[in-house]
């Protein structure tokens, strides 16, 4: 695909096209399509078992997809001549030979990519692993140290694209802050960052774009700003009156979706919702803009919706 000028990172975006992965009868990833663009941090959000890791393994050629394609900068990952120099990958920080030292793990990556030996020390310094720690064996590392080592392995080839699966796992608050700054700076300099997490607050702070996945399907995607703005209004009534409220809103031409006991989320401003409820005589317990609830509520809401769809199907 890329004939000339591949060095300019114009095409370094990750494009996932209609990706499906079926295990037996189970659709782990179901028709997933999204894009992670250069110069932006894309947060890949979903609860455990939602299909994030499977999607990421397909991206880097470890798992063959059932159907669909993933390209990075227009090329399949498997077609990259020396992938470590173009795409930094961290899928599981614990997936290392436990008997190797941290320094040795980095040295193997450095040798494989054909980089100068000094890159190993530069990376150890970057991720704040001390010389003493680097000589210890990975089995004696805490999860946080393994994550740092994994991030060092991903960055050693100075790639333009980063694919990181739950990199904040096991990091302490200062480590999370450090990684956030690192990824932000990386994207600001033109890099593409795809970052999966179920740590919603972490993603909310660092991501520019969000892709929400639940039960293998994309439930929402877009810029963080757009997604937060589109959350509408949350309205709560007494639990036994929620159906009356739903009918009142429908009668007023408003669409609503269930969002917990007695609560509906409405794609409209608070004033319109209040008018509709008042006109129908339904007493309200609570009425407020949903965007104040933050990403977590939206996340729970969206994944809960797919859970219900899955149960109904």
């Amino acid at each position: 695909m890329c004939l000339a000028g591949c060095g300019t990172r114009l095409g370094a975006m990750i494009e996932v096209q209609s990706l499906t992965k079926v295990y037996g009868g189970f659709r782990a990833v179901d028709d997933v399509t999204f894009t992670a663009e250069a110069g932006r941090v894309t947060g890949f959000l979903g609860p455990n078992g939602a299909g994030k890791s499977t999607t990421m393994r397909v991206m880097v050629g470890l798992t063959p997809p059932t159907t669909g394609t993933v390209t990075i900068g227009g090329r399949r990952f498997a077609d990259l001549p020396n992938p470590g120099l173009e795409v930094g990958v961290l899928l599981d920080a614990s997936a290392q030979h436990a008997g190797r030292t941290g320094r040795e793990v980095l040295t193997l990556a450095q040798e494989t990519m054909g980089l100068p030996r000094r890159r190993v020390d530069e990376m150890l310094e970057l991720v704040s692993l001390t010389p003493g720690e680097s000589k210890r064996r990975v089995k004696d590392y805490s999860l946080g140290m393994r994550q740092r080592l994994g991030i060092a392995t991903a960055l050693i080839g100075d790639p333009q694209v980063l694919i990181l699966d739950e990199p904040a796992n096991g990091l302490d608050p200062a480590g999370i802050r450090w990684m956030r700054d690192l990824l932000r700076g990386y994207a600001d300099r033109g890099g593409t960052v795809l970052l999966s997490s179920h740590l919603l607050h972490e993603i909310e702070v660092v991501a520019d774009d969000l892709v929400l996945i639940g039960h293998g399907r994309i439930v929402a995607s877009g810029t963080k700003a757009a997604l937060l703005a589109s959350t509408g209004t949350l309205v709560r009534t007494r639990a036994h009156l929620v159906d009356d409220l739903g009918r009142a809103l429908t009668a007023a031409g408003l669409t609503s979706t269930p969002a917990g006991a007695g609560t509906l989320r409405v794609d409209a401003e608070s004033a319109h919702v209040g008018d509709a409820a008042a006109a129908a005589g339904v007493p309200l317990v609570e009425l407020r803009p949903a965007d104040g609830a933050g990403l977590e509520e939206m996340f729970l809401e969206l994944t809960a919706e797919t859970a219900r769809e899955g149960a109904a199907a």
Binding site: V60, L62, A95, L108
Partner: peptide, 8 residues
Amino acid sequence: LTTFTLVP
């Protein structure tokens, strides 16, 4: 996981 990512 690392080996076959660095050398697909």
